[in-house]
Amino acid sequence: MTTLPQLTARTPGLPCRLDPNTFFSDQARERDAAQRLCQTCPLRTPCARYALEERIPHGVWGGTTVAERRAFWTGKPWRFDDAGRLRLLCGSERAYRAHFAYREKPGAACVGGDCVEAHAMHVEAQRRARLAEEHDKGGTIRGYQIHWALGEPPCDPCRAANARGSASRRRKPSRRLQRPPTPSGTPGNGAAAPAQAFPLAS
Rank of each mutant, 00 (worst) to 15 (best):
C115I: 03
C90V: 08
A160P: 01
G185F: 00
R55S: 09
S202E: 15
D26C: 07
E93T: 01
L200C: 11
A125D: 13
T3F: 01
W73F: 07
C38R: 03
H58N: 06
R169N: 11
A160F: 04
G190L: 04
W73S: 00
T64A: 10
D26W: 05
A101T: 13
V116S: 06
A118W: 09
A149T: 12
P5K: 05
A28L: 13
R159W: 10
V66M: 07
V116H: 02
T64L: 08
N189S: 12
M1K: 01
T8S: 00
P154M: 04
Q145L: 15
A192L: 07
P153R: 08
G59D: 01
R169W: 05
L150N: 01
S202Q: 10
E68C: 09
W78T: 02
R85P: 03
T2G: 10
E117H: 10
A132C: 07
G151F: 01
R36L: 15
L18D: 15
Q126A: 14
C41V: 03
T11D: 02
P181G: 00
T11W: 02
M1R: 01
A9W: 07
E133G: 10
Q6A: 15
A101C: 06
N162R: 08
I146H: 08
A160W: 00
G63N: 03
R171H: 11
T8C: 01
P15T: 14
P187Y: 00
A83S: 08
A71Y: 11
T140R: 02
Q178C: 14
R31Y: 11
R103M: 05
F24K: 01
A67Y: 04
N189L: 08
I141P: 10
H147N: 13
A191Q: 15
E54Y: 12
